[in-house]
Amino acid sequence: MDALLKCENLVKIFTQGEKTIYAVKDCGMTVRKGEFAAITGPSGSGKSTLLNLMAYLDTPTSGNVFINGKNLSELKDDELSEFRNAEIGFIFQDFNLLPILSAKENILMPSLLSKNPVSRSYFNEIIELLGIGDRLEHLPSELSGGQRQRVAIARALINKPSVIFADEPTGNLDRENSAEIISLMMSLHSQGCTIIMVTHDMDIASKADTVYRMTDGVILKL
């Protein structure tokens, strides 16, 4: 299979006063199209930082990220925005829904920013898949944790991205909701969706095609 995402020598250094912290040390990884990759590791090991670097939500101190053959570090800010809108879906641990928008509007937000609006039939398809059809007019504050995460997943899927980055998507959910969300992610994966997920839950990671372990900023393929 073709490589969809490729990281080369990614390094991220934070400085706190005189202290230098190597959050990500010389990371390299390749994710193929349709692959489900899980990144595990203890808290503070640099998993989320790596995910942010791969999605270019954060700029690496050095190294390159390629998605669909495009070097993200060479893209201008506007091009990067368009690329993010079209090619990347992001699911956060704490949902990050816009509180002022209803569930439906949150889901449609990437489409609003896109040059290619979504079709109503695809929207309905996602809603059906995620089972949130009856909560569309509600504000995030009126939804449960599980429902919020489903809305976040729908939002990540709406522009049919090449890759979905999920940063501990079940971290704020109970066991039941976690299982449902993971089963949803698996179903997306089975439909050909490329997923890169950060999790510290080994049970979830075991369902992935490839598992990486991160310790003190260093990544290791298991």
Partner: peptide, 26 residues
């Protein structure tokens, strides 16, 4: 917060129109 109080006051139809391809030429 009190967003609920004013939420019903504005339905954001334009938002939806622009987000769905069939309903508007963007």
């Amino acid at each position: 917060k009190n967003i609920n109080v004013v939420y019903s006051g504005y339905s954001g139809k334009k938002f939806e129109q622009l987000a769905f391809e069939s309903e508007s030429e963007k």
